[in-house]
């Protein structure tokens, strides 16, 4: 991998724009069976909560055209278990450590950030998940309301010097309003986008395929929505954007960066091809060499009609 893939997300330097998206890589350990994680710009952990969560019961995945619905429901071992058992592994992987922080209330997020701040030497950024569609309270409920986003971001800002990346939901009317609220609250970056809420029905039983009834749609099908939101937000934000949604090859990475992303997260495509980041990294290297550019030069170079 060449230095031409170096990017910055605010103060966070990444050796590649490719970050593994939260919820599609656990804490990286399983994927290290497939390839050397040191090629990655970063790894965003499974969404963590203060207490362990068993997640949603029953069927959690429903395949769709060019993607899938999931309703895992933030199953995770809890932040304390993570700190004891997984944080060091992530740090030693060589990829930047992004810890995804979820919660059900304002207080949950405060507790999480206070706890994680004690381990800041091992963490490169906190990704505040205000967007999970699969839990009953918190997350997307907070993340749909600009006032709530601003309030929670500014509170968390006061608790830590770690970079705060706010991961936003696309399930809103005006993504610019929620992104601006994160910026006004003191966010260092926004991550666009989490999954789109959806449903699939078994026509024989007339029941939803997912036991949770609804789930989050991800995969190549959602990419145009994500690209549009990144491009829109890039017109109004001063803080960097991390693009996420449907990335499956190096051209998708380039497209997100032209739209305005400083780095990108790849997720659902890795569920199909776990070692995909290896191929994308090689292709990005070649793209930079062929076009004689540093990948970071692409960010926000969209030429609108």
């Amino acid at each position: 991998m060449s230095s031409s893939l170096n990017v910055n997300v605010g103060s966070v330097n990444l050796k590649s724009p490719l970050i593994l998206a939260s919820g599609t890589c656990n804490f990286g350990r399983e994927l290290s069976e497939y390839y050397d994680l040191n090629i990655l710009g970063g790894i965003s952990s499974k969404g963590l909560t203060i207490k362990p969560r068993n997640g949603n019961p029953g069927v959690r995945v429903a395949e769709c055209d060019s993607g899938m619905l999931n309703s895992v429901g933030l199953q995770n071992p809890g932040v304390h278990y993570f700190i004891e058992n997984d944080l060091d592994f992530m740090k030693e992987s060589g990829a930047a450590v992004i810890v995804n922080v979820a919660g059900h209330s304002f207080e949950d997020y405060v507790d999480m950030v206070t706890t994680l701040d004690l381990h800041k030497a091992k963490i490169d950024a906190l990704e505040i998940n205000l967007s999970c569609p699969n839990v009953k309270a918190g997350c997307m409920t907070i993340g749909s309301d600009p006032e709530a986003i601003k309030a929670i971001t500014s509170k968390l800002r006061s608790l830590t010097d770690l970079p705060l990346w706010i991961k936003l939901t696309p399930n809103v009317t005006d993504i610019k309003a929620t992104a601006l609220a994160a910026q006004e609250g003191g966010a260092d970056a926004v991550v666009l986008i989490n999954t789109l809420m959806g449903m699939r029905i078994d026509i024989r039983t007339r029941r939803p395929v997912l036991t949770n009834n609804t789930g989050g749609y991800s995969g190549p099908a959602v990419k145009p929505v994500a690209i549009r939101m990144v491009a829109e937000c890039n017109q109004v934000l001063d803080i960097p954007i991390v693009g996420c949604g449907g990335i499956a090859d190096y051209k998708d990475v380039v497209e997100f960066m032209i739209a305005g992303a400083s780095a990108v997260e790849i997720g659902t495509a890795c569920l199909v091809h776990p070692a995909l980041p290896v191929m994308i990294t090689e292709d990005l290297d070649k793209y930079c060499e062929d076009n004689k550019l540093q990948i970071k030069e692409l960010t926000g170079t969209l030429q609108r009609w």
């Binding site: 919820g23 599609t24 890589c25 656990n26 399983e30 994927l31 069976e33 497939y34 499974k46 362990p52 068993n54 997640g55 019961p57 069927v59 959690r60 995945v61 429903a62 899938m68 999931n70 895992v72 199953q75 890795c270 569920l271 199909v272 776990p274």
Partner: peptide, 28 residues
């Protein structure tokens, strides 16, 4: 068996309920 997505242990979709001593009495 359970509906499975990745098969690689990274998505947590294909969970099975097993007995556990924790507060829920089970874990996925």
């Amino acid at each position: 068996e359970q509906r499975m997505a990745c098969g690689a242990g990274i998505c947590l979709c294909c969970t099975v309920k097993v007995k556990d001593d924790g507060p829920d009495g089970f874990k996925n």
